[in-house]
Each structure stands twice: as C-alpha cells, then as structure tokens.
Design a protein around this nucleic acid. Structure first.
Lengths: 222, 222
DNA sequence: GCGCTCGTAGTACCCGGGTACGACGCGTGC
DNA sequence: GCACGCGTCGTACCCGGGTACTACGAGCGC
C-alpha cells in the first residue's frame, strides 16, 4: 500500500485528489497539508511514501518545502504539481530534489501512474517539460563552434592559423570526415593538416592532440 | 495523420509494430528499415513524422542513425526503443538527440502515447530512466553552495571503479596496448572495458571519452 | 542454489586514423 | 625570377580502435 500526503492550499483541490486516490486499491491518503510548513511537519510525522506537492502556496511554498523534505533525508518522494508548465518552476523543483513534476491538467491516469512510479523509486516528468530537459542535455553535445583565442604555448604558436583552427575542433571531438564536411575540405586535406599538427606538436595521435588542446587551454572544459 | 518509420532488424518485431500502428486511425506506417543506414536513407526520402528506432542492429546502430538523422536537420523525431532499460543506452540516445526513449516491454498504450507525444513535439522517457535523467540534470544546474568537487557527473558515476580507472588513463592519452601492458591485462579485455565506457557515457569514440574525462574533471588540464 | 554484476579473455571483422608519398596554385620576400 | 610557406588534393598502405559476439570464474544477494 502506497501512502500519499496531499499538499495544496485549496481545499477543493485536496478533496479531488483524495477522491481519486482513495478510489484506488493500492493507494491511500496519509494526510493533508495546506501549506509548506505543515507539509514538512507532516512528512516527518507520517512518513508517507509520496508527497503530492503543489507549488503555489501561502507561506512556505512547494519548492522550499521540497528542499527541506529532501534535505531531511526522509524516504518520502516528492511529486510536484503545478497549474502551469512554467519551466522555471521545473528547474527549481528539480534542483530542490523532487522525484517528479506533473501539470495539474494531466489525465487522472497520468497522475496515478506518476504517483506509483515515484513511489517505486522511478521519476516522472510531464511530457512538455521532458522536451526541455532533453534540449538541455543536447546542449552538452559536442557542437560545431568557432575557434577561439588563447594559448601561447610554443607547441601551439608554431602552428599555422589553419592548423590551430583544426586542432581546436579536434579538441571538440570532431572526426576527420566531420571536419572535412563542415570546413568544405577534402578529407585528404584534413588528414594532411592533422598529420602536420601531430608532427609539429609531437603528439602521437589525435587523442594526445586533444589532451594538448586542453592543457594549453586552446579548448576549455565545459 | 502521423507517419511513422519502423526501424528494427527483426522482421517479426516490425510486423508487430506495423499491426499496432495500423490499427490506429491517426497513425500510418511510412516504411520499414532493417538497419541504421537504411533508416537514415528512408528518413530523408520519406520524411516521416516519427522514426521508431531500435538500438541493437547490425551495421549502423540506432544511436548512430539517430545522430545522423538529427544532424541532418530533418523534422523527423526519433523515438528510441530498446529491449532492456539499460541507462547507458539512454544516455547515448539522448545525447544523440532522440526525442524519446521507451522500453519494448511497455504497454501498447504507452507506446502509442509516446509516438503521439513525440510527433507533437513533446518528448517521452521511460519512467525507469527518468530518475537518472533528473539526477544528471540536477547536477548540471548551478548549485548554491559548495565549490563542486570532481566527477560526480552521472555519466561518470554509473561507471564501475575499474571503468573509471581506465577512463582516467584514456584521458591521459594511453593506447589500448599501453593500458593492457601497464595494467597486466589482455588487450581484448581493455577493448571490452573501453567499449562499455563508450556505451555507458554515450561517447562516440575514445576522443570524445577524453573530452568527457576533462569536462567532468576526472582528469585536470596540467 | 540461482541469478546477477563485474572483470577477465578470446575471435573475427570493418573502418577511421595516420603515414608516406607526390602534386599544384597562390602569395611573399629576396 | 625563384624559393619558400601555406593550403589544397590525391593515392596507397598499414594499424589501432571499435563492434559484435561468446565465454567463464568470482562474488554477492535472495
């Protein structure tokens, strides 16, 4: 049996949740809280499996309550609910350590599925927010970027401008064919450049060239 | 009407998907591909709304195919499917730019819902994977407080001790044979480790693994 | 005991990377 | 004029790296 604490400042909203949850055999409502402070207190007292947390509440809001609950190290998982899918709330909620983030206009089945998922240790995010998460991830991908300054290490300065440019993208993980394509060059030309870079810098292969690029700050860790 | 390209090397699997999709009024199968290369070709030719992409395929695998499809800038969204909910694949897939990631043993309704969500621009992730996604995402966010010690990036923490050890020396430019020699291992063993590291982290090759090692501060620029 | 992870090891195969050449056009400086 | 650096391109070749498999013992949890 999964126990749930309902946290919402609107009584009618709490009532709706309670009805929905109690209609399920495997879910039960451990209690209700109408603000963040009460939620924190009830979590430590009732130790529910899941806290269904509204964000907008008078006094201590849902984000801060989540932070405190998570910080307390309780086993209670927090599933945040909001009326709008504003991503700033999502970010804040995730930072606060929430296990999930759903919008209130979700289908009841989605909500129930979310509660069960969170209770079992999984996490859930509303589809409209998942997109943003993935985008944020994608930004971490090695992207074709423009060469930048820095590096007066002699191993670097002896390189020609073109060679430094190519070493920079090697340091960003580009393959020869990618370099060729994006620079509008033949792959053989790229190989020629790479070969000269290795010869001049003393790097054995492109892996060591990458290390050199980092060590000389030609590229910076992200 | 949402058009879907089915990509899977197993004919029976494709058949099953086709039956499921064709039973829906709003979905239609644009075509089928049995490997990654064919998938890339068919996407640019048929321009489906969604590509239902298996990961394990001979030749060009689903991850690389996804990477190319996304890189090509087609409007086609990629929904990755796998038999196991191995998160290493999830990472690689997400980093490749996929719009979703589901496990094959999901309920048909989940799969259909996933396809529709992806087609409409949202993203979906299997619940068992969402947890890790959130953890990883939370780590990327600017945290108030501690100066943030070294590598607790989830791409790193999911590695075993041995794998981190090997990634470290890869980040120092060692070749497989050097690693084998100095660690008293067979080169095949080293290759096995390297392969797992790449799969788990989503790095394409050892060059990107080196970059990852630097970015996560597993190794520091000298 | 059984399933699972982890570390180990092997074979076979393919491909990208690196090397070793040669070649050509374009500037710049002597 | 001519050498030289530089950027471009090509062919041919070899090898290290990566993939796709399979396999097995140790240790651990149920």
């Amino acid at each position: 049996m999964t126990t749930v604490l309902i946290v919402d400042d609107q009584p009618m909203q709490r009532f709706g949740f309670r009805m929905l949850l109690e209609s399920q055999d495997d879910l039960t409502v451990a209690g209700e809280a109408s603000n963040g402070a009460e939620a924190v207190r009830l979590v430590s007292e009732l130790r529910p499996d899941v806290a269904l947390m509204d964000i907008r509440m008078p006094g201590l809001d849902g984000i801060e309550a989540t932070r405190r609950i998570v910080a307390a190290g309780d086993r209670t998982r927090v599933l945040i609910l909001t009326t709008f899918d504003l991503d700033e709330y999502a970010y804040a909620g995730l930072r606060a350590g929430a296990s999930g983030f759903l919008v209130k206009d979700a289908q009841p089945e989605e909500l129930l599925a979310g509660i069960r998922a969170v209770a079992s240790g999984d996490a859930v995010v509303a589809p409209s927010l998942t997109r943003r998460l993935l985008d944020a991830f994608a930004e971490k991908l090695p992207k074709p970027g423009e060469p930048e300054a820095a590096a007066q290490d002699s191993r670097i300065t002896q390189l020609t401008e073109r060679e430094r440019e190519i070493l920079t993208v090697i340091g960003q993980g580009w393959t020869n064919s990618e370099i060729a394509e994006r620079f509008h060059l033949a792959e053989s030309t790229v190989k020629t450049h790479v070969g000269r870079i290795l010869a001049k810098t003393g790097a054995r292969d492109r892996v060591q060239a990458v290390i050199l690029a980092y060590d000389t700050r030609l590229v910076e860790p992200s």
